[in-house]
């Protein structure tokens, strides 16, 4: 028998009207009730978290053989747009030449790409400010002051490495987990 219950039973058996012991009984009961309600409450709230089938659908394969240098495509992954951009030499150079310490979210270009695949930049196309999709994927669209992307909602500018350079967004565009299966196919997630 749990020590707690023993104490409670003893208290009951002796039938003392000692106030502190009575308070102890009430507190134990109230605390037990609170624990029960809280764990019940959590089970119910937890049902709003992603379900097992949603979690299981987490990867997508993309054929990138058709993308010319300087072009980009948008694919859907976990319900979100992912930007895949084949960068030009100039764009790579611009991304590498910047002094990282001056950035709001300091990160080198190398840390944002796969080793030996400098041409390819893969980022989640969601502005880190409030979740809009930035412009800059199509040739005709504005790419912002830093040749990357421009978010029309609140004016955030991203560079050709997807890093935040100007505007209200706090972070660089996120890089999803991905790998090259071969030269022409990447697997996101």
């Amino acid at each position: 028998m749990s020590p707690l219950l023993t104490v409670v039973l003893e208290d009951y058996m002796t039938k003392k009207t000692n106030n502190s012991k009575r308070d102890f009984l009430y507190l134990t009961a109230a605390a037990t009730g609170a624990v029960g309600a809280a764990s019940m409450g959590w089970s119910i709230i937890d049902s709003m978290n992603p379900a097992a089938d949603t979690l299981a659908l987490s990867s997508t394969e993309v054929n990138i053989s058709q993308i010319e240098s300087g072009q980009a495509i948008t694919v859907m992954w976990r319900g979100k747009p992912v930007f895949i951009r084949r960068r030009t030499k100039q764009e790579i150079k611009d991304a590498e030449d910047i002094d990282v310490s001056t950035l709001r979210d300091p990160q080198t270009d190398n840390a944002r790409i796969v080793d030996g695949k400098k041409e390819w930049l893969v980022v989640v196309g969601i502005c880190t400010h409030l979740g809009c999709v930035p412009l800059g994927q199509k040739q005709a669209e504005v790419k912002g002051e830093f040749g990357g992307w421009f978010c029309p909602c609140h004016g955030s500018h991203y560079d050709s490495s997807g890093r935040i350079r100007k505007g209200p967004a706090p972070k660089n565009l996120a890089v999803p987990e991905y790998k090259f299966i071969n030269d022409t196919t990447i697997k996101i997630g």
Binding site: L5, R22, L25
Partner: peptide, 13 residues
């Protein structure tokens, strides 16, 4: 069950 016992004691008291 444990909670019921506790409540029984409280009620009894």
């Amino acid at each position: 069950t444990f909670f019921s016992i506790l409540l029984y004691l409280v009620k009894k008291k």
